[in-house]
């Protein structure tokens, strides 16, 4: 009896999960669900980010251009006005924002419960469970075999690159073609009880006094700003001259602490 109950409960929850996982609008739920758009606008301080051509300067006084800027956003939760959280179903909660692909900077969350929302939180990076999941569960932007997005995967040290920033600066010697690279990843895997570096960072952004109303007829937009300068000038002042290339190494956690602060809530648009 208990077994049967458990079994039916399992089936039910499987079904529920399966439906919840769908991000395509279902007409049957249209009067109970809505959508929300997230727009990630990449900037460098007060300037808009333009790849390759524009020169920017960090707090260490180094002048640089940026040739590539990508980051994963995952595990999104929305704070409801009643103080509880709506967790976007895991399978619909992995996005890769790439400066070179404008379409990737707008993310649409579907099938949200209708209601008022006062904040958002998400992870920068790909959580350990999904990083280690069966390859068939790593599709879309998590698929290392699809050329529609930049490769963000370390094949020699199984795991995703969470944030990629590359550029050119005279602070880097000519012998290195003046190029700098920051490829930051590391999900805190465990080896014999000892954890490896964990560069997953959770960003929590209240919508200040704004209340975003998700309804069946309107799709509000949450405008977020990602400031590349914060990646250089946070609690650690990242000097390009001193660290022209940071990948899987201990210092990368300082850069992760910086990028934990790089995204801010800007404003909302009702529709």
């Amino acid at each position: 009896m208990i077994r049967t109950t458990t079994f039916s409960w399992l089936i039910c929850s499987c079904l529920a999960l399966a439906f919840a996982a769908c991000d395509t609008p279902d007409t049957a739920f249209s009067d109970q669900s809505g959508k929300l758009r997230l727009v990630f606008d990449n900037v460098v301080g007060t300037s808009d980010l333009k790849l390759t051509n524009n020169n920017y300067q960090n707090a260490s006084g180094e002048s640089f251009t940026i040739t590539k800027f990508n980051y994963y956003v995952s595990n999104i939760r929305l704070r409801k006005s009643d103080g509880t959280d709506y967790v976007v179903p895991q399978d619909s909660s992995y996005f890769l924002v790439e400066e070179s692909r404008p379409a990737s900077q707008t993310v649409t969350l579907n099938n949200l419960p209708v209601g008022n929302y006062t904040g958002i939180s998400f992870m920068i990076g790909v959580d350990s469970l999904r990083s280690l999941a069966d390859i068939s569960k790593r599709t879309g932007v998590l698929d290392p075999g699809i050329a529609t997005h930049d490769p963000m995967y370390w094949d020699w040290n199984s795991g995703y690159i969470f944030v990629k920033l590359e550029g050119i600066s005279k602070a880097v010697p000519d012998t290195q073609n003046n190029q700098f690279f920051y490829h930051i990843g590391g999900f805190g895997g465990g080896y014999n009880g000892k954890k490896t570096i964990n560069n997953l960072r959770t960003v929590t952004l209240p919508f200040r006094s704004d209340v975003i109303s998700v309804g069946s007829a309107s799709t509000p937009t949450v405008q977020l700003t990602t400031d590349v300068l914060k990646l250089f000038d946070g609690s650690t002042k990242l000097s390009i001259a001193r660290y022209p290339s940071v990948m899987f190494e201990t210092y990368s956690t300082s850069i992760a602490d910086n990028y934990a602060q790089m995204i801010r809530y800007e404003r909302m648009q009702a529709n």
Binding site: C14, L15, L17, A18, F19, A21, C22, D23, T24, D91, S92, S93, Y94, F95, I135, S136, K137, T139, G140, V141, D143, I146, T148
Partner: peptide, 18 residues
Amino acid sequence: GLFGLSIACQTQKTVDPT
């Protein structure tokens, strides 16, 4: 079928690999 349903709905549409 359930598995297919759940993965058919991911962020970018891809085909069931199983």
